[in-house]
Write a protein that binds this DNA or RNA. Structure first.
Length: 104
DNA sequence: CCACTGACTACTT
DNA sequence: CAAGTAGCCAGTG
């Protein structure tokens, strides 16, 4: 039984354009729950595989990948770089450039 | 229904 | 800037 919030998260996820990223909090906000960041991460865990979502386009509020090395970190970074997202020396994404603002 | 987990975030030390 | 803490709430058993 999925909640409306969950369904909206799936919608938002599916609409992130290539080369752009969203923070967990931003996804949650767009889905209707500004404080639902943790739920987004929880959802990605259980839904990303079953709904083949572009989970790699979601990073934390600091513009960094939240996964730990050998837990998907390298994979996510590789996927983002292949879409044109650049990482700083400290593996930080410049959200001023790559954060998706939902505006076209 | 209760307890626990979690890829978060903002705030405080 | 790093580490700790409280609030957050859906999914799972």
């Amino acid at each position: 039984m999925l909640t409306l919030f969950t369904k909206r998260v799936l919608l938002v996820m599916a609409n992130i354009p290539e080369g752009k990223v969203l923070t967990y909090g931003r996804v949650a906000a767009l889905a209707g729950k500004p404080s639902g960041a943790r739920q987004v991460s929880r959802l990605l865990h259980s839904m990303s595989e079953k709904y083949h979502l572009p989970w790699h386009r979601v990073v934390n509020s600091h513009g960094k990948i939240s996964l730990r090395p050998s837990q998907g970190y390298e994979l996510q970074k590789a996927l983002l770089e292949s879409e044109g997202v650049e990482f700083s020396q400290k593996d930080i994404i410049d959200l001023r450039i790559y954060l998706w603002t939902d505006r076209v």
